[in-house]
């Protein structure tokens, strides 16, 4: 058994507006081991994005425990959480979120700016190589295609060699071919040992993972392994990193 990376117990999240309290997550219990590829699937409004934000230290739960690598993270200050995000977490967003008027390389280097460890440009170049985008590193972000943008965003998530990569609808803004390429990269990264947590509302995307967690109305309604026979393997072999 792999070591436990994420352990969530009785997690609740409420949003308060004026006098109405909306319960977004209710009694979530979830354990994710290092090296897994988990797809969190649910319709919009099911709370999957909120769960991802909490797991990624962008948000705090209303109640419950969250152990990350065995340590309760909820007691930490904002700045400590920022440092953990920087070193242990990589985010991939639906809308890429690359800086405009900036080169691909500078975008990938961005997390290094906030890092306490000193890494040089080589880390960024290596990350770009691992997603097959090294030849585009001096292009500006408005000069590359959507698929390439998402690959640049994955390289950015990889640059600090994080413990886990969160991907929030990473194929949502892509055509199906580019989408497949992006999912293949995520699968390859998983095969290389990276833990990946994917949030999506599409089964087609979700079945690239090894485990499926279904969310509905803020509660987990299903948690099972994805059998190999239905698991998507598009077979486009990417160049493996050295």
């Amino acid at each position: 058994m792999e070591k436990i990376l994420i352990e969530v117990k009785h997690l609740h999240k409420d949003y308060k507006t004026e006098d109405v309290v909306t319960s977004v997550l209710r009694d979530i219990n979830l354990t994710i081991a290092s090296g897994e590829f988990v797809s969190i699937m649910g319709p919009s409004g099911s709370g999957k994005s909120t769960l991802m934000h909490i797991l990624g230290f962008l948000d705090r739960p209303t109640s419950g425990d969250y152990l990350f690598e065995g340590i309760n993270m909820l007691e930490f200050e904002d700045d400590t959480l920022a440092a953990i995000r920087n070193e242990r977490i990589g985010f991939v967003f639906q809308s890429f979120n690359l800086l405009p008027r900036t080169t691909v390389l500078d975008n990938v280097k961005l997390p290094l700016l906030y890092s306490r460890k000193s890494r040089d440009e080589q880390a960024a170049v290596k990350a770009l190589e691992s997603v097959g985008l090294a030849h585009r590193m001096n292009y500006f972000t408005n000069q590359i295609s959507g698929g390439e943008k998402q690959r640049a965003a994955i390289a950015r998530a990889l640059v600090n060699n994080p413990s886990v990569i969160f991907a929030d609808e990473p194929t949502g803004n892509l055509d199906s071919r580019s989408g497949k390429a992006v999912m293949d990269i995520l699968q390859t990264l998983n095969e290389q040992g990276h833990t990946i947590i994917l949030v999506t509302h599409e089964m087609d995307t979700a079945r690239h993972g090894k485990r499926l967690v279904r969310l509905k109305d803020g509660q987990i309604v299903g948690d099972s392994a994805i059998p190999d026979r239905i698991r998507a393997h598009d077979g486009v072999e990417l160049q493996k990193t050295k």
Partner: peptide
């Protein structure tokens, strides 16, 4: 605003 959100998600502190 989005850029600020992104930078925070990448580990930028308030001070940064």
């Amino acid at each position: 605003t989005r850029e600020i959100g992104l930078r925070k998600s990448l580990g930028a502190t308030k001070g940064n």
